[in-house]
């Protein structure tokens, strides 16, 4: 468990973080999201003391990081940077094994561990171990960066905008890899990004940071359906995301208000028979579609509106294709 208690960071005269309090649970894939300059990266770096709070306290499992042995803390924390940040003078194997070397592992044990992890990230050890970073693509470098972070089998992995410089395809593949690894390992991931789609895709829980302050904390669903303030609403204001939610369907004017349907026979029958499934405004149209697939005639109720399967077709038909 990682706890931030009233953490403030002041640069010169400006506050980068203001009295921020936050808890990250064990085994979570926790995403810190916000525009650039929001303070999210500073927050991440405080965990392994690459940044030190001006005031306040950061603790891991109840132990203040300021009191921990620095090298030991860092050797047992995975860290993935933008662009991989591999050392250009070392081979892939040397790069990946750097923490293990610092921890004093033998060469053969190191080699075994790296080979095993290379396979896990879908890179052929035979082909890649002896290469230099200059001979790797962006996606490959970042996979090695991930191997390096995983090498010492840390309980905690910190990732600082690791995929921001990648092409969309590599980005997607690596996001899948992270989700996959997170599912396999009992490791806490703290992931920083400015890309809200990436945040939504990856996060168990996410924290929206802006101007050094925590704007909202919760699951993607919670945040999207109920933005805490204008900033959060605007930050996640994206057609393709908003369109996924039932509340948007209602806002589009589809369906009929319950009050009105009382004169409609079919609807009245339905209500009377009680055969209506209630859905939350924050539910997605995908779960609605799944329901309709099972029960082709199912009517659903979102707040005060009744929606028929035909409304789903109508909604999808009017939606523009996402760019």
């Amino acid at each position: 468990m990682i706890e931030f208690k009233n953490v403030t960071k002041t640069y010169e005269t400006e506050d980068a973080l203001k009295e921020l309090t936050l808890t990250i649970n064990d085994g979570e894939l926790f995403v810190l999201v916000g525009p650039s300059g929001s303070g999210k990266t500073t927050l991440l770096k405080m965990i392994n003391r690459l940044a030190v709070p001006t005031s306040g306290e950061v603790s891991i499992d109840g132990q203040n990081v300021a009191e921990m042995d620095l090298e030991n803390l860092r050797r047992h924390t995975g860290y993935v940077l933008q662009t991989g940040a591999l050392f250009p003078n070392m081979t892939v194997e040397q790069n990946a094994g750097i923490q293990l070397e610092a921890l004093g592992w033998e060469a053969t044990k190191r080699h075994q561990r790296i080979v095993e992890l290379m396979k896990r990230v879908d890179l052929d050890p035979e082909l890649f171990l002896k290469r230099l970073p200059s001979e790797l693509s962006g996606g490959e470098s970042q996979r090695i960066g991930i191997v390096r972070a995983l090498a010492s089998n840390p309980k905690l992995i910190l990732m600082d905008e690791p995929f921001s410089a990648l092409d969309p395809l590599s980005k997607r593949q690596l996001q899948e890899l992270i989700l996959h690894l997170h599912a396999e390992l009992a490791t806490t991931f703290v992931f920083v990004t400015h890309d809200m789609r990436e945040a939504i895709r990856l996060a168990d829980r996410l924290a929206v940071i802006h101007n050094g302050e925590l704007q909202q904390l919760g699951s993607a669903k919670e945040i999207l359906s109920a933005p805490a303030n204008d900033f959060v609403r605007e930050f996640f204001d994206d057609d393709s995301i908003r369109r996924q939610f039932m509340q948007t369907v209602v806002a589009a004017g589809l369906g009929q208000p319950i009050t009105l349907v009382k004169t409609d026979r079919l609807a009245t029958d339905v209500i009377v028979s009680g055969d209506v499934v209630k859905m939350a405004a924050s539910d997605t149209i995908f779960s609605w579609a799944a329901l309709v697939k099972q029960h082709p005639q199912q009517v659903v109720q979102v707040e005060e509106t009744l929606l028929k399967p035909a409304d789903l077709i109508a909604y999808l038909a009017q939606a523009k294709e996402a760019k």
Binding site: N48, L50, L70, E71, N72, L73, R74, R75, H76, T77, Y79, L81, Q82, T83, A85, L86, F87, P88, I98, Q99, E101, A102, R148, L158
Partner: peptide, 16 residues
């Protein structure tokens, strides 16, 4: 500086 940050983050010794 990114490489220097990476080195620090890996917890390598000053000599290394």
């Amino acid at each position: 500086p990114v490489l220097m940050e990476a080195a620090d983050a890996m917890g390598v010794s000053k000599r290394y």
